[in-house]
Amino acid sequence: MSLNTPSRLEKVLKQGNLAVTSECGPPRGSDPEAVTSKGALIKDHVDAVNITDNQTSMTRMSSLAACIHLKQMGIEPVLQMVTRDRNRIALQSDILGAASFDIHNMLCLSGDHQSFGDCAQGQNVHDLDSMQLIQTVRLMRDEGKFLGGDDIKRPPKMFVGAAANPFADPFEIRVPRLAKKVACGVEFIQTQCIYNLDKFELWMEGVRERGLEDKVFIMAGMTPMKSAGMAKFMKNRVPGMDVPDEIIDRLSGVPKDKQAQEGIDICVEAIERLRECKGVAGFHIMAIEWEEKVPEIVERSGLYPRPQV
């Protein structure tokens, strides 16, 4: 097993374990407790924790600062970076900043459009796109070079991830798009939340046809539904989300006070099914503002205890 970085996530995956990551959204304020308390809830049940980067374009504490808080409490962070807000100077600079704190995982994203957030009148940058950010960080790590060509002293040791949405349109390019990210040098993928398992498995079939699962670790994205209302919102209002009616019907079919538990059950059942899907290398459990449920999901899915690497 050859490792490219000191990342624990890389090690867990390369040792053939099903990896488990989760996610924390930084607060809309400067209280570090808002990050560390979430981290403490999931610390022992995951291999690494993503910190989102101003998700849905709502201004929040910076991803890098929140990652440092987690790192200092012994949690391995995954630094999410979107290309919306920073040009190539700022992106490279933040990658070095993260590396200086020995943050070893990064997720390269384009980011939601700013019109969704609290600064709809702001500029967006998009100097690079997510694929070009993957190329940039690989160049910095593997060649020890800046985009401008100069050498980097102590290059960053980032295990490089990206997102994939098997459910966005057009479906036919969803596998080629993954192939493109692989060609750019991505090493792990965390997918969009999966509710339509059949469609996900169909996508994975296409992934396997091209042998992409041998070139990139694919972690299936899971978000438990808190209620039928949330499921309907995700179906109708969140771009690129595929929520089959049977999920909504199942949640609607139980009393309101039982819907959250039903949502957890659906999530656990999905993990149990998808862990059998060839090419799935782990699970990315995004329990949005519901981090306390992650341990239950991990334990009930048979993914606990986490391997010591």
Binding site: S110, H113, S130, A168, P170, G240
Partner: peptide
């Protein structure tokens, strides 16, 4: 493209339309 993505589409493309 609202994000001038050079290697698209982004994950927000739905039914041929933009997320914005």
């Amino acid at each position: 493209c609202a994000k001038r993505v050079m290697n698209g589409p982004c994950g927000g493309s739905t039914n041929g339309k933009c997320e914005i």
